[in-house]
Simulated scan of single mutants.
Amino acid sequence: MSTPTAQLSAAGVSIWLDDLSRTRITSGNLAELIESRNIVGVTTNPTIFANAITNPDDTSYDGQVAELAGRGASAEEAIFEATTQDVRDALDIFRPVWEATSHVDGRVSIEVSPDLAHDTDGTIAQAKELWAKVDRPNLLVKIPATKAGLPAITAAIAAGISVNVTLIFSLERYGEVMDAYLTGLEQAKAAGIDLSSIHSVASFFVSRVDTETDARLNAIGTDEALALRSKAGLANARLAYELYEQVFAGDRAAALLAAGANAQRPLWASTGVKDPALPDTLYVTGLVAANVVNTMPEKTLEATFDHAVVTGDTITGGYEGARAVFAGLEAVGIDFVDVTQVLEDEGVAKFIDSWHDLLAQVAEGLEAQR
């Protein structure tokens, strides 16, 4: 009897783990999850690395920190060395998956510094630096979908760098992200770069949309408002998939796909349930369709493996229902444009805070070794 994670994979969902640490790599846990949980990729962010590197029970970084301290490395240089090593080692573990999936999966993401979220040129420079430093074809460089990030996405794709676009909350911004990707492909094609070597995912955040929207619905407090709770996240993601279908069926994308390019797959991020009253696999089983990625924290992965009920495609038949949710939100006074802008601002701020916490703790660790 196949497991729920195997059923999810068979339905077209690539399962990626939203976590990475050196201990997970060296203990064999990551390889075991590939084998037993159908994991075909990993995503990272500054918060994940902060949790790993500063975990007092994890001594796997101590030797490298001591060596870097002896070299007089700064905290930023030390983080760069440690995280790129972890990502490179994880990519090597995923190399057979990358080969078996025709280079679609077997991917690991590493993010540019959150301090660069509003710095186009700085983002482009660091994307190129990370791509060269890690030096693995199955890498994805993570760039946020801020206004400053959009031209950086185009430039990275144009240079042949595969990109994970992160922190997407609104359909409008998602459309801009796909446009940035296609523009980058057009520039890469003009430069003679092999388009088939360039891959990208667009990370559309889900549960955070419900957290922010539900707080506003609770404040409104009417029966009509309360009936809409925990519906915006799935509705928003389903309409994002509809937009993906429309864009990549269009003439512009078709010309690039015919030249060997790959479609930019939607990736469902923030799929751990924040409200304990909700089913713990809600943002997994409710977002099943072909050619998507679902990146899950381990708790959600284990819940999915244990008891998720996978019923096939739960997206493409739900577009009208999703539009009805948004009509209802507008009717009760929810300004969804404001919701998504607040979420983007908060997302960037949280990653910056995690990054600065990590810098401070690594600086302290380096100083203790000197």
Rank of each mutant, 00 (worst) to 15 (best):
P266Q: 01
S270W: 12
G233F: 06
D251Y: 06
V273Y: 03
V309E: 12
R238E: 09
D223N: 11
L282M: 04
A240L: 11
A227C: 11
A259Q: 13
L234P: 15
K274E: 11
F336C: 08
S230R: 09
N262C: 08
I334W: 01
V292A: 04
A255I: 00
D313G: 02
D306V: 00
V247R: 14
L239R: 09
V247W: 06
L239V: 12
A261P: 15
A290K: 15
K231F: 07
V247K: 11
A269E: 13
R323H: 10
T285S: 13
G333M: 03
T271W: 06
A322K: 02
L278S: 05
L234G: 11
W268S: 01
D313V: 02
N291L: 01
T340E: 10
A261G: 13
A324V: 01
L257S: 10
L228V: 08
G333I: 03
L257K: 12
F326D: 10
E302P: 07
F305Q: 15
G260V: 07
F248N: 12
G321I: 00
P266I: 09
A324S: 07
G321N: 00
A259N: 12
M296C: 08
N236F: 08
D345W: 00
Q264G: 12
A254W: 01
Q246R: 15
G260D: 14
R252L: 03
A331T: 05
W268A: 00
T340A: 02
R265W: 14
R252P: 15
V247Q: 08
V332D: 09
P297Q: 01
G260C: 11
F248D: 06
F305H: 15
T314E: 08
V325E: 05
